[in-house]
Structure formats: C-alpha cells, structure tokens
C-alpha cells in the first residue's frame, strides 16, 4: 500500500522515512553503486530538505519496500541543479504542471520474482500508480523521471514506457542517467493497473498507515525473552545479548543454530520465547 509523506505529515512518519532512507542507501549506494552520500546507513541529499513528496510503498508487515521522490520543476530540482548535463546545455523545464520523479527504487531483497503482491514487479507498479494518481489529482499533467537504463527497460516492460526523453543519456559516475517523460494520464494509469492486476485504491490514509505501523511494531517488538517475567538465566541472557549484537543474517542464523543445539538446556516455553525474540532482528538483517 502507498503512503504519501510530505512536509505536513512527515512528523507522523519519522520511522517510515528513516526506513526509506535506509532502503535508498542499500539500493543506490550498495547495489547500484551511484555516487550518493550515505551517512549512518541512510542516503539523503539536500533535495530531501526541500519538503518533497515521498511516495512510499509499505507491505503488510509495515516494511518499506519501495519509494519515489517528487519535486516541483518550478522550484529547485535535480535536472536543473544536479543533472543539467543531461540537457546538453538547454534550460530545464519549469512548469507547475510538470513534476520531477527521482530516487525510484524497490527492495529486491524483501521482494520476490513473479507478479504476486510481494514481487518486485507488483511494487514497481504500485509506486508508479501512486505517483501518477497523486500527481494527476494535483493538476499535474506530466512527470519527468531521472532514471538509469535498467529502470528504463523495467518501465518499458511494465505497460509504462516513457513517451520521450529530454537531452541525451549521460554517464554519471558508474551509471548512465537519462531524463524520461511520462504523462500522468488515465490511459497510462490504467495501463499499469492492467499489467499489474491492481484494481483497488492503492492509497492508505494517514490514520490507516499509522494504525498499520503501530500494529506491526507491537508484533515485532523484540522485548525480553521471558514472557512470564521469570528472571533470565545466564544462558538466556547470553542469547539475547548475542542476538542484539548480531548485525548480519549469518550472525543471526548462527545464534539461532546455537539455541537449537542447546535446546535441551531449557524448557520448551523458554525456547519459544528465545526464538521469537530474534524475529525482528532476522527481518532487520
């Protein structure tokens, strides 16, 4: 489902935004090798300080699985201020009815192949539908997206091919960046909806989104390993500590294996509690 986070409701969705900046760091920094600034595992630039609209896709567990950033082309934006070389020296488009889309990404780790709800393809379409519908309701007619050739092919394959490109594709560090034009029309939106078989309203209201986040957070809360408030044994304490300091999936798996191996040392209740404790961490990794 889609949440639109702007400068007005950003305080309500601090955690979601934080997850989104982490996702952007993993995708643009780690996976794609773009020349972006990453601090504390989060990718942010100064356009994020100009109150853009973030179109964010979250799954049923409340995890951020996709996002896109929208800016007005009348104001400072990436094509006018950063990617101007793409335009071959031409002035950038400045129009209240054209928005710029940047930082479009999905979480390929959490999402699978195929076309189902938790697939890369589905979330890609969902973010595009959310962005186009949000823009259209704002009276915006076109969007200009700064993308790389890989994303360009994804768009062409998913019933959402750009209708034109501005300037010429230019190498930017390790990747090639291009400026693709897409209309925010009913035809395009229904094309993407048909391709992804998405018929429902993709937007969550602020209240619904907050409720989803609150619900999933309670479930994931690691807490302590004993639900009956018995003092923790030294062994239990050890496992909780290990789990808290585990930073990679391998380390988490190693702790889980150790709990399994030593399971004859504690009661079945203790074991269940211990195994539930790290769930949230396993997701985190």
């Amino acid at each position: 489902m889609i949440i639109v986070i702007d400068g007005i409701n950003q305080d309500k969705f601090k955690d979601v935004l934080d997850e989104m900046f982490k996702l952007r760091a993993r995708v643009f920094g780690d996976r794609l090798g773009w020349d972006v600034n990453i601090k504390d595992g989060r990718e942010r630039d100064h356009f994020d300080d100009l109150h853009p609209a973030h179109v964010v896709s979250i799954n049923d567990s409340g995890d951020v699985v996709g996002c896109m950033r929208l800016l007005q082309t009348t104001g400072p934006h990436m094509l006018s201020d950063v990617f101007h070389s793409i335009l071959d020296g031409d002035a950038p488009i400045r129009s209240s009815q054209v928005w710029e889309a940047t930082r479009f990404c999905v979480d390929t780790k959490k999402l699978g192949r195929g076309r189902g709800e938790n697939s890369v393809s589905y979330v890609t379409s969902e973010v595009m539908i959310g962005s186009f519908e949000y823009a259209k309701a704002a009276g915006v007619l076109d969007s200009i997206a700064v993308i790389d050739p890989v994303m360009n092919r994804v768009l062409q394959r998913s019933g959402n091919a750009p209708y034109d490109y501005l300037g010429t594709a230019k190498p930017m560090g390790k990747v090639v960046a291009m400026a693709a034009l897409m209309d925010c029309s009913d035809e395009r939106i229904s094309g993407i909806r048909d391709y992804a078989s998405i018929e429902h309203d993709v937007f969550l209201s602020d209240e619904e989104a907050l409720e989803l986040c609150a619900r999933t957070k309670v479930q994931e809360k690691p807490g302590v390993a004993n639900f009956d408030h018995q003092p923790l044994t030294r062994l239990e304490k050890y496992f909780v500590e290990q789990m808290n300091s585990a930073t990679t999936k391998d380390e988490v798996d190693a702790v889980l294996r150790l709990i399994e191996t030593l399971s004859d040392r504690f009661t079945p209740e203790q074991k269940t509690a211990l195994l539930r404790t790290p769930r949230a961490f396993a997701n985190e990794a």
Partner: peptide, 14 residues
C-alpha cells in the same frame, strides 16, 4: 505555514 511544506495543492480538510 503548513501549505508551504507540500508540493501538491493542500485541501484544508487536512
């Protein structure tokens, strides 16, 4: 003061 924080038109219903 709130509307300057949005890129889209802001319905006062918000």
């Amino acid at each position: 003061y709130q509307s300057v924080l949005s890129i889209a038109p802001v319905d006062w219903g918000r």
